[in-house]
């Protein structure tokens, strides 16, 4: 069992937890993920590592409440235990040798982008960060990004905080103004990552994206997370989750992402009703 050492509500739909899992904390690298089951008989949920404390033996996860399983996970509090927690899985984000990088995060994807930005900063790389959210209430990790970024742009869809607009507009301005990045690393919703690659493509700047498809085991066994990358089938769990953004078939991935939307809505309603009943 894996104890929740610390829990923090980052915004109404996003929660952070530090989970005691010393074997994983010792090994985890930015870009890798863990798979958890909140309770026995629950679903296996893949979550990208949002940080780790090797000394305290904790792994940080940040998740958005999107369905039944994340709803149930969010019911757990400090001192409670997560029944299964396995990892670290996937290939770490490659940061070696990078001198200047633009990190682009969208929504809860910022939680995954942050440790990458921090690792780059710690290795002496110049980091420019662009983070986007729907609205002011959903903004997370602003101070953390500030601490590791030479330039930081905060965007909101409705203009309630930072600048109004999407992440690709400051990205395009930076590129137009002659910023020469070794790499752009984008982590967020599929549509955002697709548009980041469309923005960087004309400048031919290497763009890495982090794919987070539906998966079960996370070790290559089920093949449920397969994607088309450069015309070839890849498994996000073992070949990724990072891929060359210019090669990813985003349209296919977007269609695949909605495969269980109907079933998930049903499960979410059931889970919510269950807790409502318990509360009554």
């Amino acid at each position: 069992m894996f104890e929740i050492i610390n829990k923090k509500i980052l915004n109404p739909t996003v929660t952070m937890m530090d989970v005691y899992a010393p074997d994983i904390a010792k090994k985890a690298q930015p870009g890798q993920f863990i798979i958890l089951r909140a309770a026995p008989d629950g679903e296996r949920i893949p979550l990208t590592v949002a940080g780790y404390d090797r000394e305290k033996g904790t792994v940080k996860i940040i998740f958005q409440i999107v369905g039944a399983s994340t709803f149930i996970l969010n019911q757990l509090n400090e001192g409670d235990c997560i029944s299964d927690f396995a990892g670290p899985l996937g290939v770490p984000t490659k940061t070696d040798g990078l001198k200047k990088v633009c990190v682009v995060g969208g929504g809860v994807g910022c939680a995954i982008a942050l440790p990458v930005a921090q690792k780059l900063y710690d290795s002496g790389c110049e980091v420019h960060s662009i983070v986007g959210f729907r609205t002011k209430d959903l903004v997370i990790l602003e101070n953390e990004f500030k601490a590791c970024s030479k330039k930081l742009y905060i965007m909101t869809d409705d203009g309630s905080y930072g600048e109004k607009g999407v992440v690709t507009s400051p990205l395009k301005s930076l590129l137009d103004s002659g910023e020469k990045y070794d790499e752009v690393i984008a982590i967020g919703p599929l549509v955002m990552m697709k548009f980041v690659t469309l923005t960087t493509k004309p400048y031919n700047i290497k763009t890495t994206v982090s794919m987070n498809p539906i998966m079960i085991d996370g070790t290559g066994m089920c093949g449920g997370c397969r994607l088309t990358v450069g015309g070839k089938t890849k498994f996000a769990c073992v070949d990724g989750p990072d891929f060359d953004g210019f090669e990813v078939d985003f349209d296919e991935a977007i269609k695949k992402g909605s495969m269980y939307s109907r079933e998930q809505k049903h499960a979410y309603d059931n889970a919510c009703n269950l807790f409502k009943k318990e509360a009554d």
């Binding site: 085991d217 070790t219 290559g220 066994m221 089920c222 093949g223 449920g224 397969r226 994607l227 088309t228 089938t233 296919e252 269609k255 695949k256 909605s258 495969m259």
Partner: peptide, 18 residues
């Protein structure tokens, strides 16, 4: 553990499982 696929068109569509 690693499932084989046929590498034919449409194998990554919704509704195709290993």
């Amino acid at each position: 553990g690693l499932p084989n696929f046929m590498n034919i068109e449409g194998e990554n569509l919704n509704g195709v499982y290993s």
